[in-house]
Design a protein around this nucleic acid. Structure first.
Lengths: 286, 286
DNA sequence: TTTATTAATGCACTTTAAACATTAGTGTCA
DNA sequence: TGACACTAATGTTTAAAGTGCATTAATAAA
């Protein structure tokens, strides 16, 4: 059994058409046909029901398609990471983080890392909350700062800090201070917020604030990235609720009103991390 | 890249000796040598550091060995399960369960299943607690009854019931009733219990009972299987603490003394189970 | 220095895979 | 109903890759 055969199988299982699939794979139709036959013989499992005119997956084939796809992704990820190891890019640490860390915590951590390990290269990316676990597990990032509570048995985590939320509004806005945070005023506002997908921890925190101020937000613009949110607020298009850290940025035209609600920041990493450098960086931060 | 190459790599990475490995694999040393070279070329990753006299893994090789082993196991498991599907053994449900269910709950569930799905074949096995999750994930069983609280994101679970613990002692024993459960008496006993590995939920429950009765068990015989435990108790070799269900068995020579401590029974199954029959059986039971 | 050990390699041979061309079913449409 | 288009399978030839045997080259041990 070859990795090609498995790729071919997965391709055909999506396309369900020999000629089109073989064209996409840059092989001939006869070759593809024989590869699939070979795979079926080796596994001793019928993968496709085929007539002279059409192809469809058997139940067993469907099962293997569904389960092989993630396995192969995982497999490819290990190879990519092994290459990294070989190229000594063990000297690189890849981190994903929420935008709200940009102006206070992130610089602080980075200078700590640079101080201790001057030769280490740090890659920073931002991800949506729902990709954080996947990117860690598939070795696409090495550490993830997140406002979200994830529970995966592949990962370890630690609470880095709790910080306050703040309302962020345009400079020109009616809302000037804490005393303006009344239901009748707030209910007139457009809110710019991350996707409030139920089942996640962050939406629950926001909902908590809405409940407390008796807000029933009618129009909501969604963005998961703090810098976008603040820029939009500056234009006067709406208001938002963000971690107070964001106020350390130098965006003009907005003001922040701290409120007595807090939000966590967690650090996540792979359990049993192999790479000693990553282990060191993690323990430096935690 | 072939699955053989990967197996060969994993074999060599354990043995770290070409000739011995090739002998075990029933191929020649030259063939193995070239397979490994081929794999290294295709991946463009150096897997082994070799001299003319010795072999050892590179860092990248070590990483791949560690991560490929579980991936390949998973891979093989999917094939085995696909065969099951093809053979229509979709009509088979494989269940692992604690021995303490044998005499009350298990017959009850099995007759329920047999009533609803007369053609279904049920396979029953007993596993140690620390294998339950693995067997589910690798499709070696389809459902697991367990006294233990597992948390895996691959699995769903449901609490089936709580039941009482009971001391189980030989008929001839001094301990006759609840009023004999005193520290001075109990501390003289040998206990026959499952492995009390810390970090698991069941040991914590047992420890709880020990604490309450101020027992500091000095000599402990370990067995994870209820029938063994009760048989040993019947010989007078020691006493034990078991779920009260066990008293439904017809073992002679022992008596049970119920105590006000309870133990849960959970049912675990794979999240997103593909097999409709298994889904039906699960919802029948839960 | 000799000998034993061990991974790599040259060579002959076998097996497998590739492309091309053709065949054999199956549905469609006049 | 018959001609036609479509599609998966297969026969054939040629090229590539894998296999085992024997040998080589390097190294450690005696």
């Amino acid at each position: 059994m070859t990795s090609n055969q498995i790729s071919y199988f997965l391709a055909l299982s999506k396309e369900l058409h020999y000629w089109r699939t073989s064209y996409q794979l840059n092989i001939t139709q006869s070759s593809l046909s024989r590869h699939i036959q070979g795979l079926e013989q080796e596994l001793n499992v019928q993968l496709f029901k085929r007539t002279k005119r059409s192809v469809e997956l058997t139940d067993a084939g469907k099962f293997l398609k569904d389960h092989w796809e993630p396995i192969m992704e995982q497999f490819d990820a290990t190879i990519a990471y092994a290459k990294k190891i070989e190229q000594g890019s063990l000297g690189t640490v890849s981190i994903t983080h929420p935008g709200s860390m940009d102006h206070r915590l992130l610089p602080q951590f980075l200078s700590k890392i640079a101080g201790q390990y001057p030769l280490v290269k740090t890659e920073l990316i931002q991800l949506r909350y729902d990709q954080e676990v996947e990117f860690l597990v598939k070795f696409k990032v090495d550490m993830a700062f997140s406002r979200y509570k994830h529970s995966s048995e592949m990962l370890d985590s630690k609470l880095i800090e709790m910080e306050s939320f703040a309302f962020v509004v345009s400079d020109m806005h009616d809302i000037k201070s804490n005393s303006d945070l009344k239901p009748d005023i707030l209910n007139k506002q457009r809110f710019i917020l991350p996707a409030l997908q139920p089942g996640y921890s962050y939406p629950a925190l926001i909902q908590n604030i809405f409940d407390h101020y008796q807000i029933n937000p009618s129009i909501v613009i969604e963005s998961d990235f703090a810098s976008t949110v603040v820029s939009l607020v500056a234009t006067g298009i709406g208001i938002s609720i963000v971690p107070i850290s964001v106020s350390f940025s130098s965006v003009v035209g907005v003001k922040f009103i701290e409120i007595p609600f807090t939000i966590p920041l967690y650090l996540y990493w792979r359990k049993n991390e192999d790479n000693p450098l990553i282990r060191n960086v993690i323990s430096l931060i935690t």
